[in-house]
Design a protein around this nucleic acid. Structure first.
Lengths: 180, 180
DNA sequence: CTATATCCTAGTTGGCAAGTCGGAATAAGC
DNA sequence: GCTTATTCCGACTTGCCAACTAGGATATAG
């Protein structure tokens, strides 16, 4: 439940890439999709980045050697505004859309649950407000490091299990595998 | 973004109704859909309540005068378990499904955002854990009271605006409406 | 003037939430 | 025992919208 759409997924990954190259030359969509493993027609990414640009979080340069860069520093970009630009207002329920005051909820029964959805909305909103793009970049890079360690550990493990033991080597025979 | 499906919406309303009648005789679906304004074929509600029953939150009595009642007291029922029964695990992203440990996330890039979705998931989960069905019922009833006051205020307001003023009454004539 | 980009509007489509169908099982009241 | 009210169940249909595509215009570097 409460799934985020692919717009949110890809868009955030894209922003992480831009953050990683903050200060550099602009990044083209071709470059981004390759680097971040977004194997899509670029035209879909164009749509996403357009929303981000229209909300003033990304600047673009057209023509050859063009591309996108962040319009603000990663510290100034909160995940809440990024995701709102990509996916619209946080609204677990129609009657709990942020910004709008419960005009829709005339029904007595409908409101029996309004309190619940409002709480969920506020919790999500507060969480996303508290995380900046800079935070995410930091976490992403350390996660990347951890992943690399794990990957090499798996490689070692593979070597160990493939290497025959010193004592008795596995004695052929079908079904000879021991359970203990 | 982060919308709750109609299963969640209707299911919670249904549970609020059962909570309101905790201790009484069982409530039939016909009764519930009328009382809570769920104007649907009952067969859809049957599906929802079935999930709730299979998760041991609701007991059923078959046959005439049958229906459903809560299997535990409203204080013991957390919104988190209710919604999980109705909509499955909280998972803003596939790689952030609660309960499962990030086996899926082998990709270095995919994990750049894992941190974010995990935080969102935990925030939602904590919020829903902290609210019981009893809390919701209490809020629902007070909201209902507020709504009734507001409704009568609107009725009064309507009377006031419809009542001709002491000075000049609106002077007929087609297109004679004044802008100021 | 060509290659590489962003920019924009308007399609198309596949999957799945949402809702439907038909019928079996169970119990109360007459 | 018949009728009526209800839960129970698996399988089917449908409508919608996120997700993606098509096609072309516009801008800029070399």
């Amino acid at each position: 439940m409460l799934r985020v759409s692919t717009r949110g997924e890809y868009g955030v990954r894209l922003m992480v890439h831009l953050a990683r190259h903050y200060g550099d030359r602009p990044c083209s969509l071709t470059e981004i999709s390759l680097a971040e493993g977004l194997e899509l027609q670029q035209q879909y990414l164009e749509q996403l980045v357009r929303s981000l640009r229209q909300h003033g979080m990304v600047e673009s340069t057209r023509g050859a050697h063009g591309g996108y860069r962040l319009a603000k520093s990663p510290e100034e970009l909160r995940m809440s505004e990024i995701l709102r630009a990509l996916e619209g207002p946080i609204a677990p329920m129609i009657c709990a859309t942020e910004g709008e005051m419960d005009v829709i909820c005339d029904r007595l029964d409908g409101c029996s649950t309004h309190f619940l959805w409002a709480r969920v909305r506020d919790a999500v909103s507060a969480t996303l407000d508290a995380i900046t793009l800079a935070d995410l970049l930091r976490e992403a890079d350390s996660a990347r490091a951890v992943q690399e360690v794990m990957a090499s550990q798996r490689a070692v493990q593979r070597l160990i299990t493939l290497t025959p033991r010193a004592g008795r080597s596995t004695p052929g025979g079908a079904g000879a595998q021991q359970q203990a």
